[in-house]
């Protein structure tokens, strides 16, 4: 465990808390892509099936349970809560997210640390997580104004994987750890946020409302 890793996981947790606060206090999920949230449920379920096969960890296990529970809660709110579901921008959430799943599954089938059920699912979840933000970014681009909580949510969600990159660099030098699958996927994941980061920081510095061109 190093500071980058801890900060990364806390940032990830904070992003989810921000989203839950937005949904619960404003009773609105405007600007949030249900498709991205659906993909996160799939990511966490496929990655954390190892809860049943691996020994429990005081650090990882609570995080895994929280990520599973919160992602399912968010999707539940967006689909079934009688007030929240009416605020969902269904018509702007147009990305064909199902088309992301098959290529990730094929990739996981061929590129994995070991050809076992758990390892292939783990690889699938790493690949899918890398691209799961795409529907959300497309939705933001079609929104004329992005509220602060939504902007902060997406920023924290992107920052988390960027911090993992620093953690991997640290571990490479300090612990000789080499992990090509998460490294490359994490790099792609972070790169997808580059545009968003640019406009987020620009609007923050100019004290303006965030808007993507």
């Amino acid at each position: 465990m190093n500071a980058f890793r801890l900060l990364a996981d806390l940032t990830h947790l904070l992003s989810i808390i921000i989203l839950l606060v937005k949904i619960r206090t404003t009773k609105s999920c405007a600007g949030i892509s249900l498709k991205t949230q659906d993909l996160y449920v799939l990511v966490f379920i496929s990655r954390y099936l190892d809860l049943f096969t691996r020994p429990l960890s005081l650090y990882n296990t609570p995080f895994k349970l929280v990520f599973l529970a919160t992602s399912i809660t968010i999707v539940y709110y967006m689909r079934y809560h009688k007030v929240v579901k009416q605020t969902y921008n269904k018509d702007s959430d147009t990305f064909k997210h199902y088309f992301l799943i098959l290529p990730c599954a094929v990739l996981a089938f061929f590129i994995n640390p070991k050809f076992t059920f758990i390892e292939v699912l783990w690889s699938f979840s790493i690949y899918l997580e890398a691209v799961a933000i795409l529907p959300q970014l497309v939705l933001l681009q079609s929104s004329s104004n992005i509220d602060n909580l939504t902007g902060n949510y997406v920023f924290m969600l992107g920052a988390y994987r960027a911090l993992y990159l620093l953690n991997w660099i640290y571990r490479f030098f300090a612990e000789d750890v080499v992990r090509w699958i998460p490294w490359i996927a994490g790099l792609v994941q972070t790169a997808l946020y580059a545009d968003f980061f640019y406009y987020y920081i620009k609007s923050w510095r100019n004290n303006e409302r965030l808007k993507l061109p």
């Binding site: 890793r5 996981d9 190892d50 990882n60 640390p113 070991k114 993992y164 750890v177 992990r179 998460p182």
Partner: peptide
């Protein structure tokens, strides 16, 4: 670099 270490991240 052991197998065990592989899944020590979230």
């Amino acid at each position: 670099v052991g197998e065990k270490k592989f899944h020590d991240e979230l």
